[in-house]
Amino acid sequence: MGTPELVERRKNLSLPRLLPYLYLMPLIVLVGVVIVYPFFHAILLGFWQKDILKAAGTRFIGLDNYVKLLTGERNFWLALRNSIVFTMCSVFLEYVLGLVSALTLNSKYIRARNFFRALILLPWIIPIVVNSLMWKFMLAPNFGFIGQLLAAVGLKWFQTVNWLGDVNLALPTVILVNVWRSFPFYTIVILAGLTLIPQELYEAAAIDGAKRWQRFSHITFPLLKGVSGVVVVLHIIWTFINFDVIYLLTGGGPLYSTEVLPTLLYRKAFEEFSFGYASSIGVVMLLILMFIVGKFYTKVIINRQ
């Protein structure tokens, strides 16, 4: 027997009380190993020069990577601008297309709705690599499907347009391919949101003589804001860090016209093997994302609540 404090302490350390933590242990270890450790390691790496192909090798350099990135990297500001344009245009167009397609598929006048709902998912469920290579082939000048199609309807000039190889057309083309791939996700989420809107509201509005546009702007759209906020925030993050679509379509070119921060980071890390410098790009990306998403989240979601 011991003092009441000792008994209490023993109770706290008893197996039933520790058991939940033991159950959580594998998950904690897993998260620690695959997320927490790499995260902090990458932040620390940003303060080091770690070039495995250069004689200078590895040494602590403080903020030098950041100074070089913000003042000496000629592609950083270009990549940042492209990242913002790519993200904003993609998310906006995806949302508009997703909303329109969801409203259409929710209409009672559409027959075989379930078939079309399944069909619209196709672009999203095709693996990104297949999707991107398929578009690359279709967009090829001269013998690509898109050029041939446009030529067949009389727009012969388009047959030789180099959609992905022209400095002015490459970024808009990459955005359109990304929109095509991603908008079905919005469709599905918005469709789910539409089913949650009570029918009575529409009936009451109809009795009050509200027209279709008024019903949309006063009932549908406001009640979709929650769902829309979540899907837009998610897609801002996913699009800002999107690497595969751009890399597979253009590799960041031509002449860096489609260079975004993820492709710049990849190039520094896995072509030049400057891991420290690449980590500093990753940290800057994280800060930018935290700022944008934080602002958006506070404005759209918290304020709404």
Binding site: P141, N142, F143, T160, N162, L164, G165, D166
Partner: peptide
């Protein structure tokens, strides 16, 4: 060399030669 060939990688070049363009 046509303008539309700018930005070609070897796959485009080999494919186009095979296609006869």
């Amino acid at each position: 060399v046509p303008l539309y060939t700018r930005g070609w990688e070897w796959q485009n070049l080999d494919q186009a030669f095979e296609a006869g363009t």
